[in-house]
């Protein structure tokens, strides 16, 4: 994927250059917007490359909780805080307070998730599938044979 970002950024640079060289595109606004686009693409590509994120990741044990109320609270808090900019400081403060609460909740959720993950890993090593720590379906199906007793068969 890194190449896609880079390639697309290069395409944008090429279009800008055509404008600059052949059609007299020279206003500051346009050049800044084009330049910014190219820079954003380059930055994404660099981050992906540095983080080793360019390649797809398969497998892995998941321990994501099914519901995440603190995330919802955070969303509501941000909306309220933003409305505070219009309706008054009190609302911004309420929003800020709720956001703190939500972040606390998210931290707890994250800790619980890490614990569940560790448990699930142990379970997976022992050959079981934990309830919430289910294996990624790709794992263990290196060359799965399709249609052998799968749901599709039942439908036919």
């Amino acid at each position: 994927m890194t190449r896609v970002f880079l390639g697309w950024g290069a395409l944008m640079a090429a279009i800008m250059l055509v404008g600059l060289l052949f059609v007299g595109l020279d206003d500051a606004d346009s050049l800044a917007l084009f330049g910014g686009t190219v820079a954003v693409m380059a930055a994404i590509a660099v981050v992906l490359a540095l983080a080793g994120w360019g390649r797809a990741l398969h497998g892995g044990v998941r321990a994501l909780p099914d519901l995440s109320p603190p995330t919802v609270l955070l969303g509501v808090a941000i909306v309220l805080a933003a409305l505070g900019a219009e309706l008054g400081l009190w609302l911004a403060l309420i929003g800020g307070g709720l956001a703190l609460l939500a972040i606390g909740g998210l931290v707890r959720e994250g800790r619980a998730q890490r614990r569940a993950l560790a448990r699930a890993r142990a379970g997976a090593r022992a050959g079981r599938e934990g309830n919430s720590g289910r294996l990624h379906p790709a794992e263990g199906y290196e060359r799965p044979e399709f249609g052998s007793g799968g749901r599709r068969e039942e439908a036919r």
């Binding site: 995440s68 995330t71 955070l74 969303g75 509501v76 941000i78 909306v79 379906p137 790709a138």
Partner: peptide, 25 residues
């Protein structure tokens, strides 16, 4: 893509709520 879930599901969930809140605003 054959994926079990989305990457950064909480970010997506937050996105939904910001969208809903913004639209109502």
């Amino acid at each position: 893509l054959g994926a079990a879930e989305i990457v950064w599901p909480r970010l997506a969930l937050l996105g939904y709520w910001l969208y809903l809140g913004g639209a109502l605003t």
